[in-house]
């Protein structure tokens, strides 16, 4: 029976074959490869021949790595800032877009605000680096005209989070409005009529009708954001940080990159990566459960 099925739909299965191979080789084999976190892996011996060492690398990280606490703190802080400032930004902007009366002006502003989304991380980091340069950057020139001291922005740990989060907002705020605007378009127009009859002014309509209509999208995006909570933006961090700013800029993922790729300390780096992924997974599952309990929107 089964064989005849396979034969009958052979062509369809063959079509799927390259895709399935992709998933096996580049998704499932690496998942299996995570066991090197519990080994003293060496390339020569391979996964089969390397010795198991249990939780040694986890102990190494939590007990013997002086920076462990700093890395965890930085990861959490940077992501909290991200949730606090970057996450609400498109919500506010979508509300403002919605209130623009001229259709043409609205479309123009939207197009302009989407643009940074298409720039590469390297270009944005490059703009930050050149603009913030202490001696030659335009930002410091402006500061000095206004009578302020020049600041070595990218060499000061206290500036890193601000710089990182502002560049993230600049890049994502416009594009982030798309889903919210779609949600607003789905709001029943009679709700506005009803609100007007009840004497609501425009600000009140915005708060009680438009904003409420966006809530389901907010919830889904919130849970999705939490799903990436532990890994946010480390590609940009790699471009923006340096040893002077490690105090606030070095996160788990950048540490995994340095230890794993640059120092070829594979087992240890995989263990740190696994710890990070586990926290991320717990966060998204918890968030989804909480959301499910208190509203009818959830991811699964």
């Amino acid at each position: 029976m089964k064989r005849s099925m396979l034969k009958k739909h052979k062509a369809l299965y063959l079509l799927m074959l390259p895709g399935i191979l992709y998933y096996i080789i580049f998704k499932y084999v690496p998942m299996y490869g995570v066991i090197i976190a519990f080994q003293n892996f060496s390339i020569g011996r391979g996964i089969m021949g390397s010795k198991f060492v249990g939780l040694k690398h986890f102990v190494d990280f939590f007990v013997n790595t002086p920076d462990a606490w700093k890395l965890i703190r930085n990861t959490v802080m940077l992501n909290l800032y991200d949730l606090l400032f970057r996450f609400p930004a498109p919500i506010v902007l979508a509300l403002l877009f919605h209130e623009i009366r001229s259709k043409r002006f609205k479309r123009f502003v939207q197009s302009v605000s989407y643009m940074p989304h298409f720039l590469s991380t390297v270009v944005i980091a490059g703009i930050m680096v050149t603009f913030l340069s202490q001696q030659t950057g335009i930002v410091n020139h402006m500061l000095s005209w206004l009578g302020f001291e020049r600041i070595l922005f990218l060499g000061k740990p206290e500036w890193f989070r601000t710089i990182y989060i502002s560049s993230e907002i600049w890049q994502t705020v416009g594009w982030g409005t798309i889903l919210y605007l779609a949600a607003i378009a789905g709001v029943d127009p009679t709700l506005y009529e009803a609100a007007k009859i009840d004497g609501a002014n425009r600000f009140q309509q915005m708060r009680h009708v438009t904003l409420v209509g966006m809530v389901p999208v907010m919830i889904v995006l919130f849970v999705l954001t939490l799903g990436h909570f532990m890994e946010t933006g480390f590609q940009k961090i790699i471009l923006l940080y340096n040893s002077m700013t490690y105090e606030t800029a070095d996160v788990l993922n950048t540490f995994v990159y340095r230890r794993g790729i640059l120092s070829a300390d594979f087992s240890f780096a995989t263990a740190v990566g696994l710890f990070q992924a586990a926290i991320g997974f717990i966060l998204v599952v918890t968030a989804n459960r909480v959301v499910k309990k208190y509203s009818d929107t959830s991811l699964w």
Partner: peptide
Amino acid sequence: MAAFTLLFSGGMIPTFLIVQ
């Protein structure tokens, strides 16, 4: 099988080792 990879991945280092 495909949806599962949205939640779980091997991470940077195991993927690097496969490519290598």
